[in-house]
Design a protein around this nucleic acid. Structure first.
Lengths: 294, 294
DNA sequence: AGTTTATATAAAATATTATTATCATTAATA
DNA sequence: TATTAATGATAATAATATTTTATATAAACT
């Protein structure tokens, strides 16, 4: 029994005529006759009683008619749902990101995207290596990560340049100056994330490269907590512009430039080279570039 | 999209491998590859991501997998239900009968039949012409009717011979005699069904043929009512043996023979000559002969 | 690097499905 | 009642789909 058979059978049921069904399905009458009698042979039941030249359903036929309609409807529903996926009326995107992007940038970008497309978005936060692994598994569709990615099977495209800002409380003595010399940092209490965090790595690497000494007085494993501590003037810190945008704008934190020193890092969009790029996927990548904060 | 396609797709999903699916379905691997890529072409969506040499379902694929299983299950269910019909574990019989057979004989016969086969039985009571019409419409599968059927498209096979008994109350003077001469009826009050009823036709026709005069004093359109009236000794009547079997056995009515006169009629089983005779149909006919009361 | 395993592609073989032509039967019409 | 039109069945042929064989390509494992 094929879907075609079922379609033929249901049509014959509804028109109570093989010839009429043939017309409706744009095929010859013998094709219908043959299909029906083949079904009867396969199923070993009579589907129609042929009395006079009128067809009437047998009990078995009535049962098959009822199932047949359900089956055809389900197939139609499946096809139309897939069509919705194709036309981005439905969909799913699985994104993996670094902590900073995941917390301070993506929620807004995804929010905007979902205004245009009513799709499900899943996102996972992890370090670059972890995100890379998820891409290999095809557990996520794309990643936004920091730093270089070494697999030649992964496509890497530059996304946004991030900068870490030296920030202090508005009551800190630097708040007025807006700019300091590197030497001024040496005796300042610094609040920093734990070893291994991306933020700390860039800070230490940059400071070392510029031969600036520093003193990390407090370690907190949470950027929000660091911001609160800086606001309370417990010390100063170096935090992604994405994470302190609001506080600087609101005046609760002050950005302080350091002569000749900038803490920089680059985010990239990554995905597997063999990944099939659905319409939705491409649309999301475009959206990422349009809405990113430069 | 055919059922075969869906079966292939679902198998690939479950084994996460085209080659494994090929083995399971006893076909070559390229047939699977082709079927899947054709589906993707037809539906215009990617169903699998081919990353490395691992397959993983896309979002569209997951949707189709879910629908696919439902569709295949429904087809399986339909086939197994039809198999139940074929093996008489399910079924339907539509029988049309004359009043007497329908009320006094069939209920018991059908009850016995349903002990063997758990099927639905519908029955319609009507006169011969009406039953014949229902057979032409294929609104019933078979009929049990009285008298000759004239259409050459209807198969008529003799069923049982019925006899109408002259009955009186146990307190009637005939109750002792058990046999009377035709002349004795002439002055007796007779209770009878209305004109046009099968019972009355036979009675009148037989009496006329034997030149016996009679007097119908009471007319009731219901056999049960007539039986009660005879029991109450309001008069005597002529009633089918099927209808008075219990009362005679219980002694509430007494059968009285009339010398040289018998009221007889024959019941026949009828069905359309083109009617497909399902297993259940044939089984029921056999059952009718086994359980009929001779 | 070489071997094995998995999927894709092209051409050929096979199987399935539909069509044309025709018949038998039935219902409708003259 | 004879004639015509319509319906479904059957057989042979034609057209289309599907599957296999052979081969290529690429990835994972020794």
């Amino acid at each position: 029994m094929t879907l075609r058979d079922i379609e033929i059978f249901v049509t014959v049921c509804e028109l109570k005529s093989m010839s009429a069904a043939a017309k409706k399905l744009y095929m010859s009458q013998p094709a219908i006759s043959q299909a029906i009698s083949q079904m009867e042979g396969d199923l070993q039941v009579r589907l129609f009683d042929r009395i006079g030249r009128k067809l009437s359903l047998t009990y078995a036929g009535e049962i098959l008619y009822s199932y047949g309609k359900r089956i055809l409807n389900l197939v139609k529903e499946a096809e139309s749902t897939l069509d919705d996926v194709r036309n981005m009326r439905m969909g799913r995107l699985r994104v993996g990101t670094s902590t900073t992007v995941g917390i301070y940038l993506l929620p807004e970008i995804i929010g905007e995207f979902r205004k245009k497309f009513s799709i499900d978005v899943y996102f996972t936060i992890g370090n670059t290596a972890g995100i890379e692994k998820l891409i290999f598994d095809n557990s996520i569709d794309l990643g936004i990560v920091e730093g270089p990615v070494h697999s030649r099977d992964i496509v890497v495209t530059p996304y946004i340049d991030d900068e870490l800002y030296l920030v202090c409380s508005k009551s800190h003595r630097w708040a007025e100056k807006k700019s300091i010399s590197p030497a001024e940092i040496e005796n300042e209490d610094i609040i920093m994330r734990e070893k291994g965090s991306g933020m700390r790595e860039i800070f230490e690497e940059t400071m070392a490269r510029n031969n600036v000494r520093y003193r990390i007085k407090y370690v907190l494993n949470n950027t929000e907590a660091i911001k609160k501590a800086v606001e309370a003037n417990i010390g100063v810190s170096v935090i992604s512009r994405l994470a302190v945008k609001k506080e600087i704008r609101g005046g609760r934190l002050v950005k302080v430039d350091i002569e000749n020193i900038r803490f920089e890092r680059k985010f990239s969009i990554i995905y597997h080279k063999d990944k099939f790029k659905s319409n939705l996927f491409e649309e999301f990548i475009r959206h990422l570039y349009n809405y990113s904060i430069r």
